[in-house]
Design a protein around this nucleic acid. Structure first.
Lengths: 189, 189
DNA sequence: GTCTATACGAAGATAGAC
DNA sequence: GTCTATCTTCGTATAGAC
């Protein structure tokens, strides 16, 4: 794999700080200190603090969009598509725990990219809801409000970043299948 | 009901702004403007910006703790206790949508109250987990990792504030029971 | 690629008049 | 209870030397 550029290193470290305190509470001096350099030096690699946030959030949002498009175009049934969505969230969240925090909590601080981000998010949710509605129509899924189902599943998946780093072992395959069981078939006997 | 004091009004308006932009991104000048006064005037009613956050978060966290203690001391079975927890979250979240945002996203900006908040949260999660473990022992609940179950249910409940204000009708009883169905018995047929 | 020096504005908060 | 005026610190960002 390619060596990490200085810019990528800055963005990675920034995401970690953003997760701990949020975008607004992290200063360029904080970030520089964490990198072991002076704040002014950061500007040789990035244009602005905003640019860092844009990069973190948009690249992740696009990864989710791409994953969803792949799942949609598959010929699986709806329950299997849901399982694939769960796997997608587990995979992307575990690969980029810090970025997921910004995606969830700091998207409102995007500037030029805000509209674009919001479109990606709405499209993603529309695709998700479509899968649930198909499942209801085909009889695979219970006929209760798809909005509430989507909200329930998606907020769990979107919060994975909070919780994944706390688990030592972290067998991702196992986590995906446990989550699938809980989210799809429930917890009662 | 008692008339809202100026201090309570400030805290209510602050919580609304904190939900939109986060604690760190809201300035005392923003808050004053929203109140129709000057920033200096705020300090006749509150001691500091920190104080506002403390008030918002701690009062909510204590309400959750109180609710959990009541549920625990009841003689219901575990599934019914879970349903009561869901009702508790729906109730408190709908009563204080803005405060829930701070509770979820800005708790790390607490100062003196941080330790106390963290204790309340950990105790709450311990109580929640105990209920799940009892349910597993009694055969009411499937025998999969209680941590993953708790995470899944609790993150959904903690995110209700994002979603509740978007629903026009908002029949709280109905929302609680739909959520109970989805979270407890799953979504598959 | 990093530094020092610095510009410029905005932050939280206080003093004291009305 | 609110105002104006102000203090002090800290924010992002740039210029130019090394």
């Amino acid at each position: 794999m390619k060596k990490e550029t200085r810019r990528e290193e800055i963005i990675r470290v920034a995401a970690k700080l953003f997760k701990e305190k949020g975008f607004s509470a992290v200063t360029m001096r904080d970030l520089a200190a964490e990198m072991g350099i002076k704040a002014a030096s950061l500007y040789n690699h990035i244009n602005s603090k905003q640019d860092i946030l844009n990069d973190i959030i948009i690249s992740l949002a696009e990864a989710f969009t791409e994953g969803m498009k792949l799942i949609q175009s598959s010929n699986k049934n709806c329950i299997d598509k849901l399982k694939q969505i769960i796997e997608l969230h587990v995979k992307l969240s575990s690969q980029n725990v810090y970025g997921m925090a910004s995606l969830n909590n700091d998207w409102m601080h995007l500037d030029e990219k805000l509209k674009y981000y919001q479109k990606l998010r709405i499209d993603y949710e529309d695709d998700f809801r479509s899968i649930l509605k198909e499942g209801i129509a085909s009889g695979e899924i219970i006929n209760v409000k798809p909005d509430v189902m989507m909200f329930s599943i998606l907020t769990t998946l979107r919060s994975l970043y909070i919780w994944i780093p706390k688990k030592e072992e972290l067998n991702l395959k196992e986590l995906s299948s446990t989550l699938s069981q809980i989210l799809i078939t429930g917890i009662n006997k």
